[in-house]
Each structure stands twice: as structure tokens, then as C-alpha cells.
């Protein structure tokens, strides 16, 4: 069996990070500069809702600056896993975790980890667009203001930069003072992305970001993910397998709380190793 240089590197990375999964980097032309380091790494990481183990002993490294898609049937634990990364599950009283999950070498659930700081670094965009009932400008400026930026000029720069990154600037630049709830669903979702980008996170968690959008808006969000690839580590939960194969470099397949398969997207969709994965991606699922 022949290995490319990238695969070798990935194997080394995997060996160093102590995970039992083999990880492959994508072919050379898709490689991202400075990417591929384990950004988030889970070790025997389980998530419980009371007695129910929603995510079972996951071992995986999320590689930096790549797009990782998480797929799987409803209730398989993919959203739970995603929300665990920035501790959104803390809102659910009965939820607790075992094992460790590290972010940049720091235990996310460690005793001294500050979740506010963590969430600044790990931004999240939700299934349903959820802009604040404020003006477009205030929506974007909200995060930076929280973190102490009050200078009007700096804020204006941040707002413009974030909206440009989220490919929304041209559509809203003349009506920044309008209420964000007046935007269309797709625009609202891009606004949410821009709002998250405004606090300059390192990781972007997208929880089914296009499930409430029409195909046109979905295409825009996908283009946006393509734009951001290489600048941020992106995790996207999706029900749409075409979307996963279009936008992601890696794909995780969850089934009943187990991380069944984690591989480069192309490999997972063309040559899955696991029978369950194959059944799922070919639609032969009962």
C-alpha cells in the first residue's frame, strides 16, 4: 500500500495525538497552508443526558483550518458532540461528560477553563437563524463590544470586515441601521456567521446552518464555507450528504452515539470502510 506524503504526515499527527483513528490529509492541491494540526482532540469522550449516553467514547482529532462535516441519522449525537466543543450543553442541567476533549492543548471541560473565553474562540452558528432583534450593525458589533471594543471607528471596521467575509456586505451596506429581523432567512443566517466572525474565533461550529434555507441561500452559505476554509477550523453538522461531500475535507459519521467512521470526505463517500456507513450514504437505511 502506497502512501502519499500527506497521508504520512497525517499518520504522524495521528500517532502523536494518541488517537486510535487513522487520519488522512486530502490530496496536495486541496491542502491548506499551516493546516492539519489537531485543533480539537477528543479522547474517550462521552456525553450523557442523565443516564443516556448520547455520545460514546469518541476518539478523534479535528484538524485545524479544514472543514469537517458531521453526518448521521437524527438522534445519533452529532449535534451533541458539536455543542460540547463550546460547552453549549452546559445549558442543559442533566448533561455531563466523561473523558477529555482538548482545545489547543487545553481541556475544554477543565476546572480552570473559562467558558466565556472559550466561546469567544469557538464561535457557533445555529440551525435556525437567530439574529438579535436589533439593527444589523448592532448585531455584528455586539460581540466586539462585549469584549471591550467601544471605539466607533474600530467597530465600523470590524462590522464591514465581518460582513465582507460573510458575503453580505453588498446586500446590506446601505441599511446597517435597519432591524436585522427584516432580512431574509438566508441573509439572516449569513448575518449570524458574520456576527460570529466579528469576535475573531478560531473555530466555527455550524449546526445544520442551511436546514431552514432555500437552495439559493444554501448555495451562498456553502460558497461562504468554501471562502472561509483555510482561515478557520470549521465543523459543520448536516443532514444533507451532498452538502457534506461538497463543502468538507473530512467527514465524521455518527451512528447511535458511536463515531463509526472518520475519514477524508472523498474516501468516506466513495470507499467507506464500514458497512453501516455504506448503508447510510447509499440510502439503504432502515
Amino acid at each position: 500500500m502506497q502512501m502519499t506524503a500527506g497521508e504520512k504526515e497525517a499518520r504522524e499527527v495521528a500517532a502523536k495525538s494518541d488517537t486510535n483513528r487513522e487520519i488522512f490529509l486530502p490530496p496536495e492541491r486541496q491542502r491548506v497552508k499551516d493546516g492539519g494540526k489537531p485543533h480539537v482532540s477528543a479522547k474517550n469522550f462521552s456525553i450523557f443526558y442523565g443516564d443516556f449516553e448520547a455520545v460514546k467514547k469518541v476518539n478523534a482529532d479535528i484538524l485545524s483550518k479544514y472543514v469537517t462535516a458531521i453526518i448521521g441519522p437524527s438522534g445519533c449525537g452529532k449535534s451533541t458532540f458539536l455543542r460540547a466543543i463550546n460547552r453549549m450543553n452546559d445549558l442543559i442541567p442533566s448533561c455531563y461528560t466523561t473523558g477529555t476533549i482538548m482545545f489547543d492543548g487545553e481541556d475544554i471541560y477543565g476546572r480552570f477553563t473559562d467558558e466565556v473565553q472559550l466561546r469567544k474562540k469557538i464561535g457557533m452558528v445555529f440551525q435556525k437563524p437567530n439574529p438579535f432583534p436589533k439593527s444589523i450593525f448592532d448585531n455584528i458589533a455586539y460581540g466586539p463590544r462585549l469584549h471591550g471594543v467601544n471605539d466607533k471607528k474600530t467597530l465600523e471596521e470590524i462590522v464591514e470586515k465581518s460582513l465582507l467575509k460573510a458575503a453580505l456586505w453588498d446586500e446590506v451596506k446601505d441599511r446597517l441601521d435597519r432591524n436585522a429581523l427584516g432580512l431574509s432567512g438566508g441573509q439572516q443566517q449569513r448575518l449570524c456567521v458574520a456576527r460570529t466572525l466579528a469576535v475573531e474565533p478560531e473555530i466555527l461550529l455550524l449546526d445544520e446552518p442551511t436546514s431552514a434555507l432555500d437552495p439559493k441561500a444554501t448555495a451562498k452559505i456553502e460558497d461562504l464555507i468554501e471562502e472561509l476554509r483555510g482561515s478557520y477550523t470549521i465543523l459543520i453538522v448536516t443532514h444533507n450528504m451532498q452538502q457534506a461531500s461538497r463543502v468538507s475535507d473530512y467527514t465524521m459519521f455518527y451512528y447511535e452515539g458511536d463515531l463509526v467512521e472518520y475519514a477524508p470526505t472523498k474516501q468516506l463517500f466513495t470507499n467507506p470502510r464500514d458497512q453501516v456507513t455504506e448503508d447510510y450514504i447509499t440510502g439503504r437505511f432502515s
Binding site: 455586539y142 460581540g143 462585549l146
Partner: peptide
């Protein structure tokens, strides 16, 4: 108050008090 607003505010790094005074209470 819709939980999505709380999540949105937490997602950009609000503390609990900031979520309450900035979003939950006004709504």
C-alpha cells in the same frame, strides 16, 4: 424568551449576566 436568543448571545461569548440583562430581560 426563545432559547435561540440565549444561545446566540452565549455563542459570541456573553457571560450569563450579560445574556440576562442584554437580551432576556428586555424581551
Amino acid at each position: 424568551v426563545p432559547p435561540s436568543i440565549r444561545e446566540a448571545a452565549l455563542g459570541v461569548g456573553s457571560s450569563k449576566l450579560q445574556v440576562i440583562t442584554g437580551h432576556v430581560l428586555p424581551l
